[in-house]
Amino acid sequence: MNWVWIGDNLGLIGGRILEHLALTAPPIVIGLVLSIPLGYAASRSRVARSILLSLGGILYTIPSIALLVLVPVILNLAILNPLNLVFALSIYAVAIMVRSAADAFASVPRDVVASAAATGFSGRQRFFEVELPLAIPVLLAGIRVVSVSTVSIASVGALIGIDQLGSFFTDAFQRSFLTEAIVGVVAILLLAALYDIVLSRIGRALMPWNRKQSAVMASPKVSTVPLGGSL
């Protein structure tokens, strides 16, 4: 462990953490926003569910390096444009999140929705005022998985020359310099933990009814998805 190198390169490390943050936040948000209508559709119809979930599964199995080579061709962007990485990460985010969103809307108690309909909620009001808020616990569990997986997969961007924490791995490999690799791993872990903490805080703030009920209920178990499984 070369502490002197770390001390000399604090600026570089900080900069790459920020780069990594800037590249991963948009795909997480896009994944959430897109998965809500898709997941809702999947929760409403058996056919839509099987199509959308299979599609999500297929997209998630595309090797990330292959996707990163394909995306610039599809979007007609320069190969070094960071938007390529954002686009690819968004695809993975939606692919994972669609299943969580479908489960989230399926988890809303049917009798509550029926009672909302019977008391005069219109379809739109039912969605925004009843189904969406009650889907938050499962949506939150899903987005926490997505955030960790996005932070991890983003490091592949180094292979196509997009600078972020993954660049420490390529540098370490080329220079046989272990310290850089360790710095990259630790920084990625810390960033993933940061996302997780921030997201669970947001969830707590959004669900006062859960908080009052019991503190334990507020932190739903995160299901296990193989992280960076497509690396």
Binding site: P109, D111, V112, S115, A116, A118, T119, L134, W209
Partner: peptide, 9 residues
């Protein structure tokens, strides 16, 4: 309705 059907949130 049965079980009141209240909005839990």
């Amino acid at each position: 309705m049965q079980n009141a059907g209240l909005l839990p949130h």
